[in-house]
Amino acid sequence: MHPLLNIAVGAARSAGNLIMRHYDRVDELRVHTKQRNDFVTEVDRSAEARIIEHIHRANPNHAILGEETGASGDDEVVWIIDPLDGTTNFLHQFPQFAVSIGIQVRGKLEHGVVYNPYSQELYTASRGAGAALDGRRIRVSRANSLEGALIGTGFPFRDDQDVDGYIAMFSEIMRKTAGVRRAGAAALDLAFVAAGRLDGFWELGLKPWDMAAGIVLVREAGGMVGEMSGRGDPMNSGNIVVGNPKVYEALGGTIMRHLRTKKPS
């Protein structure tokens, strides 16, 4: 295992232990609303602080991009951190949440860790070295088309998102596939695509910390990652589509038919 990935694994497990110590007493937590349907708790903040402490103990000069603390430092190595992806699920004791840590080196995503502290499943990947679940190699599914495929998604919840376009996408994809699942933690959805549990996934309006680790996982498991419009980088736009190569192509084509190309006057 690459030394940076090894540090990320230790940081994710440490944060996961902290998260689970609060799982059975979420009613005691202080919860703050960042925006409509977007919450943060003291657990999110404490978990991120623990991850950063773990990183800087080994690499004090590395830069950080965290969901709760923002950007800090100036280095060719940037740690992209979501300390608790799926906070709403956690607050409802719905066991679909994760610690997500991506590592970018000289502008390229190199390593990723997604850890579900409830199930203790650990997904890891390094560029050029493959992806693994609990140390066992994983690959994307072998689905040949949308027919019979199981697709993951995330619902848009901000006022500036193209809800009408999303509903049209959802309607067509639902009719073409075996089903669409919305579990509420994008990092785990991406990990599930890497492991072949989902055949594809799409979502609008994500942040870099939601995607960084999962992108590495999907690519290293043999999957495709792209921006919904077919141009640009999902890390910049927040609009992502992934899947095994055949599902990715079919899913992307379906989505593009319903993208809003310009804002209404």
Rank of each mutant, 00 (worst) to 15 (best):
M174F: 13
M174I: 12
T33C: 15
V163S: 07
A8T: 10
S229C: 08
T87Y: 04
L259T: 05
E227Y: 04
T69H: 07
L5T: 10
T69E: 10
G112H: 05
T254E: 12
G232H: 03
G222A: 05
D162W: 13
R142P: 00
G222T: 09
S119H: 11
K207Q: 10
K108D: 13
H32N: 12
I55F: 07
R57H: 13
A187M: 00
L204Y: 04
S14I: 11
L190Y: 03
A187E: 02
D159C: 10
R197Y: 03
I101N: 01
N236A: 10
R106Q: 15
G214R: 04
N61H: 15
D44R: 08
D38A: 13
A186V: 14
G148T: 09
I81F: 01
Q104A: 11
D27S: 14
G86C: 01
F157C: 11
E42I: 06
R127P: 00
H32Q: 14
M20I: 09
V78H: 02
L109I: 03
S265Q: 08
H111E: 09
K34D: 13
R219A: 05
S72N: 12
A132C: 08
P208D: 13
H54N: 07
E110L: 05
D75R: 04
D164C: 10
G16A: 12
E28A: 05
D159G: 09
L150G: 11
A129H: 11
S237D: 00
T177I: 12
G230A: 08
V218T: 01
L84D: 01
V78P: 00
M174K: 11
Q96D: 07
E110G: 02
G222C: 10
Y118S: 07
A221N: 05
D164L: 12
A129T: 07
R36L: 14
V225A: 11
D44G: 03
A250H: 04
N116K: 04
T153Q: 08
A168I: 06
A71L: 08
A183M: 12
E42D: 14
S229D: 12
V9Q: 11
R13W: 06
G222L: 09
I151V: 14
V114E: 00
L204D: 01
E227H: 04
D27W: 14
R139K: 12
G184E: 00
G154M: 05
V78D: 02
L18M: 08
K34Q: 15
L109V: 09
V9S: 00
R136Q: 13
R158F: 04
S171G: 09
D74E: 15
E48Y: 03
E227W: 02
G128W: 07
K263L: 15
P208N: 03
Q35R: 14
H2C: 09
P264R: 11
E220C: 06
I52A: 04
F157H: 10
G86I: 12
G102K: 06
P83A: 07
G165P: 12
W209R: 03
I80Q: 05
F94Q: 02
D210T: 08
Q120N: 13
G196E: 01
H2S: 12
S46G: 13
W202P: 00
E68W: 11
A98H: 01
L109M: 08
A15F: 15
E68L: 05
T124L: 01
V105C: 04
G179K: 06
G232M: 08
Y123P: 06
L198I: 02
G179V: 07
V140A: 03
A187R: 00
